[in-house]
Amino acid sequence: MAVEQELINVAPEKLTVDNVSKSFRGRQGMVQALANVSLQVREGEFVCLVGRSGCGKSTLLNIIAGLEAPDGGQVLADGKPVTGPGRDRMVMFQESALFPWLDVMGNVMFALKLKPNLNNQERREVARYYLKLVGLEKFAHANIHELSGGMKQRVALARALAPNPRVLLMDEPFAALDALTREQLYGDLQRIWQERRKTIIFVTHNVREAVCLGDRVVLFSPSPGRIREQFDIPLPRPRDINSIALAGHSTQITQALKQYLGTPAAEVAE
């Protein structure tokens, strides 16, 4: 095995999920959240993980983030095993997780202050750059509670981008927003992704959202959570979530989901 690995000559993937398993102690004994999941993500790729809630996609994201340790297998980031959270893999959560005791600027600065090799003037400049990128430069000194849900997620995005991570992990970041705000953010996220060339792993249960954003859509099925199928989405960008071409892909993936889950397609597609 070791010899084989030595002899294989492949370009290293940005992220490699290698045979990862994870179980939790639930009310009815052990629940296997992930069973032997393997996934490769290329540099600059936008990958969406789709599946019904409870299929382990968020757990996988947490393991990649280093917030949870796998029971078996490992995650490699740039070929190095992940042992804990790090600024090279920033996470954006479903709830914004912004700190209410800091203003918008303070929140974006939080991660930057932990980054050595920058003075405070430079940190503020960087923070302002990212606030501008998400269109909130005018709200630098607003309090968090004064922002709408969509604005909060924009700040969370700026905060996640600020330490300049190579990988961005997003856990249903738009699930709690209204449809219009969400559509706006799809546009912004695609723009920012192209501008900043990040590698993004995006967890969602919304197939259309996944097709709109991802280069690749990875289908999960629950109990135990595992990868069932992967779809490349060769549509040109920027993509409009309401376009017919996009709907075609969504239908195809939803059909596949239905087949694995045995649930009505409408529920999965929202």
Partner: peptide, 18 residues
Amino acid sequence: VPPLYARAAQTMGSRGLH
């Protein structure tokens, strides 16, 4: 304190006493 705050801080490189 919502555990999410500590998790978010960890991903930004905050540890222990910080």
